[in-house]
Design a protein around this nucleic acid. Sequence first.
DNA 1: AAAAAATTGGACCGGCAAGTCCAGAAAAAT
DNA 2: ATTTTTCTGGACTTGCCGGTCCAATTTTTT
Lengths: 209, 209
Amino acid sequence: MDAPVQDRASLDVVGLTAKGIATRQRIIEGAAAHLRSGDPGVATLDDIRDVTRTSKSQLFHYFPGGKEELFLEVARFEAARVIEDQQPHLGALDSWAAWDRWRKAVIARYRAQGQHCPLASLMSQVGSVPGAAEVSSTLLESWTRDVERGIRTMQAKGQVGEQIDARRTASAFIAGIQGGVTVLRSTGSTDHLEAILAILIAYLRDSAD
Amino acid sequence: MDAPVQDRASLDVVGLTAKGIATRQRIIEGAAAHLRSGDPGVATLDDIRDVTRTSKSQLFHYFPGGKEELFLEVARFEAARVIEDQQPHLGALDSWAAWDRWRKAVIARYRAQGQHCPLASLMSQVGSVPGAAEVSSTLLESWTRDVERGIRTMQAKGQVGEQIDARRTASAFIAGIQGGVTVLRSTGSTDHLEAILAILIAYLRDSAD
DNA sequence: AAAAAATTGGACCGGCAAGTCCAGAAAAAT
DNA sequence: ATTTTTCTGGACTTGCCGGTCCAATTTTTT
């Protein structure tokens, strides 16, 4: 389940000993947990130092690019989590029951984490850190693709009308989820998120006449 | 059109001379323009000082609460703009043509401002500044209400099915727009925004059988 | 016109946080 | 074993930015 994380990490750890890799990973995960539980805009390297029980020099040793590089790494880590948390449902949207389980998983996930959305944390840095835009749009793209695949599967089974534009509708789902979460972050309520997921799924169901 | 802004301002300007009011307003508008064109997380009081041609003491004279108070005031200013920019369409969603004009106005607005969404700037401070959450949820609420009213109007005319939950569907619209804009901010494309607006309107049209 | 109040300019302070440096400990290589 | 590389600790530097202060100027009041 964390295989992709391992892969990702191994790209950057060439030349590090086992101990070094462990420390590096501990920093990323500790920083991720810390950023997730607060406003990432205010998070400081010293906070991360405290929470990960490391020193300044370790931070800069493993992330020569400093704060920016570390945050990007955390962003990648979190992006992987977003998709993983929706599995196995997202990967097999092949029946209305599956869609329903997925819908519930999404709502449960965001309800649980409340105001703190790691993806939003990501987005809030899109402006300042160049690489962040790439990380988040990659995530959005693969997320959209998964949903699109689900819609095509349903079309193949005749449970969604052929006239539906799978790609476009998948985009709508992703936008809807993003928006629902955005509203959640500022109002604390999942109403908007639930509303749009229900409507979009109803739209798909109604399409098969 | 800027009557509400005047009202709002007049609440805080008791005891200020005409010149003072003008300076205060110049600061708010200049700061708004500046924040709109960059990452608000990095905006500094000195930047605002430069762009508004004022001095530190003026900033603190008119906004004793410092940065926080000034930013909140800017947030209110921007929140008003968001609604205004969709008028007069948003206020009179009484035919499919009107809905279409509204849809186009929304897309045009966000396409024009590209990656920089003032509402998102607002949101990104929800965590740090207490009042920001209130400002943005007030905006979302009144925005949702406008759409809800539009749906009810269409229902009264028999152009949207009675089985549609107006409130819930309006929530979906708002969430959809938010999400579309969120995606726009990170990918630069309005595809998601256009997709979800089209689908939601189609959903409404199809409801009138 | 004089006094009082509001407005403006900008120097200055203090704290905080990113990033540097180097010395010492631990681990790996030979 | 010793030598070389990797890893770790934390003090220190540097610059930035929010906020304070006070003196000068303009405007309003009487």
